[in-house]
Write a protein that binds this DNA or RNA. Structure first.
Lengths: 199, 199
DNA sequence: GAAGATGTATAACGCCGTTATGTCACGATG
DNA sequence: CATCGTGACATAACGGCGTTATACATCTTC
């Protein structure tokens, strides 16, 4: 067992190299030949281990959701669920800003290598956002939010934050006309949605 | 002047063919060779008239923003600015749902043919959203919203609606757990933001 | 009519994803 | 221990891509 042991690890190395390539050079830099050179193998590695480039990208997306879930799970749970919700939003934005290309692929705005979102990834995304649903439920249980569908409420918060981050990444808030997008747009928007839900 | 007269019109025909191809087959279906076959010319047409595929895509994006601006401008201006704002949101969503691929290219950091958003397109997008700013300003002037920065308020509404539409297009609200995404998510979210701004 | 400019088609270059083919190391089987 | 089958591997090829070089046809201008 010499190069045999490399078997299990080369799959992960391909995923990591793809994520790195995506982060460094964007979607255009990701190719089977480039990946093969990066991990010191032939392009066949992509096909034996994944079946094709789209499947590899799918694995990268799942890795991205996993990373996002870790970021959100790392947000400490305090005795003020409202502050926790705000912290989750900040963590969500920070993660997106740290991995802009991956974020774009995860949410389908980039069509990388014929890749399209599958139910599997959608479930993964939904699972990730269960953290947000849980925090919302806690806020309801604490009597801060009036009783309601935590799922729908979380979807509101997710939509608003997601939309802001997407526009921010696209560059729409980079103008000199918007010196403080977070303070003037994101925070008030979040506060408005939260306020409307108070008991 | 026989095929010469086709000169001025072939540029527009290329843009329209590209938009159609994008709508029909998605980003993967857009190629210089495919376009050339579609309009009955060689691939060189793309280069003589645009300089390359990215520039052609940019023209398509500008067309998309123009189409969006038309949709928004078509929303009638009533004596209730609040209803107008809601109608603008509906028009925005309807336009995105009608042209999902184009919408993704317009707002995504999508990697279509190496295309990246330029300041020019950002300005075009900002111009389009001036319609939303104007409606917001009218609401303030009518004494319905308390005085404030119409730009920042419009950005909130835009972010929220945009985020919802993006997640909807990605398929996150297609689950059986979300039977009425618009009624449970979009409308309450919009109402919350609006309510927080009332005088 | 000659000269330059402009749009075009053809063909080629270097990429790309993917696949067919042959090879070689390994685990299982006798 | 010998054999076989399996699976990962490298190589090479195929078709398609964006792009560019080149040559040709046409229009404009003098």
């Amino acid at each position: 067992m010499r190069s045999r042991t490399a078997g299990p690890e080369i799959k992960q190395r391909l995923i990591e190299a793809a994520a790195q390539l995506l982060a460094d050079e964007g979607p255009a830099g990701l190719s089977t030949r480039r990946l093969a050179a990066e991990v010191g193998a032939s392009t066949m590695a992509v096909y034996t281990h994944f079946g094709g480039l789209p499947e590899l990208v799918r694995a990268v997306v799942r890795e991205g959701f996993s990373r996002l879930a870790d970021h959100l799970a790392a947000v400490p749970e305090t005795d003020d669920p409202l502050l926790d919700l705000a912290a989750l939003g900040k963590a969500y934005r920070a993660n997106a800003l740290d991995n802009p290309h991956l974020y774009a692929v995860m949410f389908g705005s980039a069509s990388l290598g014929g890749y399209r979102l599958h139910d599997e990834e959608l479930d993964e995304g939904r699972d990730t956002y269960e953290v947000l649903v849980a925090a919302t439920q806690r806020t309801i249980d604490a009597g801060i939010f009036r009783p309601g569908d935590a799922n729908a409420i979380a979807a509101q918060l997710w939509s608003a934050t997601h939309g802001f981050v997407m526009l921010e990444l696209a560059g729409y808030f980079a103008s000199e006309r918007e010196p403080d997008a977070v303070g003037d747009v994101l925070d008030p928007m979040h506060a408005a949605i939260v306020t409307a839900l108070l008991a």
